[in-house]
Amino acid sequence: MDVAAAPRPRTAKRWHPLVITISILRLGGIGINTRFWVSIGLLGAIVVFGLLGPTLLGKRDPLRIVGGLYDPPSSQVWLGTDNFGRDVFTQLMYGTRTSLTIGLIAGAVATLIGVAVGTLAGFRGGTIEEALMGITNVVITIPSIVILILLSIAIASRSIVVMGVIIGITSWPWTARAVRAQTASLRAREHLDLARLSGAGTVSLILVDIIPYMLSYIFMAFVLQFASGILQEAALSLLGLGPTNTISLGIMLHWSLLWEAVRTGAWWAFFPPTVFLTIIAFALLLLQSSLDELFNPRLRRK
């Protein structure tokens, strides 16, 4: 492979560092709500790009070979080509879509299991709570990346859905813990006593009298699981254990690392997915910190 022949970038558009610094500083001065909305805005923009991009720009096959090894950006291929000569911009759109889908499935699975375990433990208390939370704590201590690696090598052909599900079933314990705490504080409320007196069963009590009261909380937990699912997928794909026969942000990085895009200066191959993952992660942490302050006012500064 003649990697040295790959042209080096000369025309990259550079942001002045000062502009970036100032805009970041401005972010810090703004209140919870603005921080919250900025993070929602960033995530929203990425979602729109991944979902609407392929529809608006016409369907293309992200795995189709359109050029040579690391062709630089041009009017035909807006972000150049990758090591197989595939269009990076198309890959970015479809890769974003794949990553989002996996994040969505992982978030849904994790939230579903977490809410089920958390509400049951928090609502029933006693032995059931101890057993469920014991299991939760055991699962938390076993590092999820290990289970993910082992599961991924066990499943030879990994579809997008399978990836989402296995990420989801390794990340539910955090949601379960948070939901249990919320449920336990709801348990003492009067309306629950009334409902209990009327003879309602556990499941209907949880569905009717507990979950509606913490829907916003559950939604927040879901958003966090969604974003961290995307990052988990990226890490797995980077290790070479991503979904098969498709493209995702992590897989793009995996190939560009294997085919030395960084060292040969083919920035268009690795920079876009890196930036996308960074934005997703930053939005996640921004969201988390604004929610933290929302739920725990003592962390707030006057």
Partner: peptide
């Protein structure tokens, strides 16, 4: 905000950017 930003970057993304 700088700390929040830096710590939020996935560590491999920072590694790639620094390497480049």
């Amino acid at each position: 905000v700088t700390s929040l930003f830096v710590s939020s970057i996935p560590y491999y993304c920072l590694a790639i950017m620094l390497l480049y």
